[in-house]
Simulated assay, not measured.
Amino acid sequence: MRATAKICGLSTPETLDAAIAGGASHVGFVFFAPSPRDLSFRRAAELAARVPAHVAKVGVFVDPDDALLDQAVATARLDAVQLHRVDPARAAAIRGRFGLETWAGVPVKLRADLDAARGFVGAVNRVLYDAKPPPGASLPGGMGLRFDWTLLDGFAHPLPWILSGGLDADSVGGAIARTGATLVDVSSGVEITPGIKDTGLIEGFLKAVASA
């Protein structure tokens, strides 16, 4: 199965259009104030209006309350929600509240960290394996960190899964070949500075995914 890609943390029409033109299957909008990629509801709505039906709009949240979720889902017309720092019970409640495809982030540094994915069975549709941030980090991802992909060797994935963490055009082909990922997620790997995406980097990343 050929891999597809989500371009996450988009914030401008130009970079969003580049992601869509390049063949991204998903685009990500971040709703988390500490992130340099955080969007206002107005900007999210403007961007969402540019996304064709065949591309899924994913809202990215960190331990969100219901008020934030309600407004983001409605204004950005989200197709899926990606949750970080949320336990399985809360994830299941969010999934039940909106009836949307729901993803849960699983931070990985050691092989044992993968076991957390099993707790989300029945609560979410997919898990997203990302590099575990350093202690005290304010962000759950988007820092260009990569975990050891060999940790996935032989792991019996309990749910459909996404590979994230430190990917860029140079590394994503090898990551797909090494892990068998069918959906990859990139944010900082297509940026020139934190939060500022580059259309050329997006194009190059998506070409690398398509040729993997």
Rank of each mutant, 00 (worst) to 15 (best):
G9K: 02
A24C: 10
G144Q: 01
A212S: 15
K6D: 01
M143D: 14
W149Y: 03
P158Y: 14
L83Q: 03
A181R: 06
V190N: 05
P64L: 10
S138V: 13
T199K: 13
A112E: 15
S164N: 10
S211D: 15
R90P: 05
A44I: 04
G189R: 02
T182A: 15
P88L: 07
F29M: 11
F205V: 03
K207H: 14
T182K: 15
G200Q: 14
A137N: 03
F29S: 08
L183R: 11
D170P: 01
R126V: 08
L47P: 04
A210R: 14
P135C: 06
G144H: 00
V62R: 09
G154S: 05
T150S: 15
K57H: 11
A156C: 09
S35T: 13
G195L: 00
P194E: 04
T102R: 06
A67E: 14
G99I: 11
V51E: 09
L151C: 14
R50W: 12
V55S: 04
A131L: 11
L68H: 00
L16V: 06
L47A: 08
R146M: 08
D66N: 13
G22H: 10
C8T: 01
A93D: 14
A116H: 12
A3F: 04
A56I: 01
V27R: 02
G200F: 11
D115M: 13
P13A: 04
F61H: 12
G122F: 01
A80R: 09
W103Q: 14
S211I: 15
G122P: 00
G105A: 15
H157R: 14
L110H: 15
V60L: 15
H54S: 08
I202Y: 05
V190T: 10
G195M: 01
V60W: 13
D63Q: 14
D153L: 12
I7L: 06
P107N: 08
D17P: 02
T179R: 13
W149D: 03
D113V: 01
D153G: 12
G195C: 05
A137T: 00
A67V: 10
A92K: 15
L69T: 01
A112V: 06
A80T: 05
A53D: 11
V58E: 01
A19K: 06
D66K: 11
L114V: 06
G165A: 12
L159C: 11
K197L: 08
D168V: 07
A89F: 07
I94Y: 07
R146L: 08
A131K: 10
P52Q: 07
A177H: 04
A21Y: 05
V121Q: 12
L167K: 02
F61T: 07
V172P: 00
R178C: 07
A48R: 05
F32I: 04
V127I: 09
V127Y: 07
A169K: 09
A181E: 10
A117T: 05
